[in-house]
Nucleic acid binder design. Sequence first.
DNA 1: TCATGTCATCAGCCTCTGCTGATACGTGAC
DNA 2: GTCACGTATCAGCAGAGGCTGATGACATGA
Lengths: 102, 102
Amino acid sequence: MLSTQPLDAAAQLLADPLRARIVALLAAETMCTCHLVEVTGARQTTVSHHLRLLREAEWVETEPCGRFTYYRLRPEPLRALSAELDALADAAAQAADRRRPC
Amino acid sequence: MLSTQPLDAAAQLLADPLRARIVALLAAETMCTCHLVEVTGARQTTVSHHLRLLREAEWVETEPCGRFTYYRLRPEPLRALSAELDALADAAAQAADRRRPC
DNA sequence: TCATGTCATCAGCCTCTGCTGATACGTGAC
DNA sequence: GTCACGTATCAGCAGAGGCTGATGACATGA
């Protein structure tokens, strides 16, 4: 268990459609808020709200550049979550035989 | 993209603390509802509610056994989600260089 | 058949959270 | 300085979803 945040807290960050879209967009390209607003079609305040949650969870890093703010997605939290899910899948594959009797 | 369900829908299933706990418990051992109620300390209706969501998403399979109902966690959805997150992490690792200019 | 135990479903409540509009801050251009 | 632009924060609202108690279906054992 290498994760620094609980499984449910990490999953919660991806549980919203728009936020998941933002994560996917930032995975492809480092971009600033105005890009995300343009691509997603959401309001600026809404995008900023989601970026705040990602920032507080340390899933993204900000890089101010003049008037703009670039957002970069950190791969580490995604890797940690992926590894945790993979471990669960491994356990589940073996749990078909292990059955707790009533 | 091998996943049969959207990223946010899959993440939503793990976004609740109790539901994530149930998934983790079922990953370790195939067990029936009464076990989950006993271990988690939650009400039976609450556990049944979460099991229903996992069942409808086909994350678990049921096996009626007399009065009891055994629940088995399928590893496939976890693997698919893990793979998707790993791909996002790969992309994010390279996206540090790719920057969309304003 | 009747009582008991296991589990699922339903309606209602309540909390959480995402969305919105208004507003404030900082930066760069003029 | 003044204006435009990009961004963040705030309060209020509304919808989604988790929890609860009541209830019913089904299987088991006396």
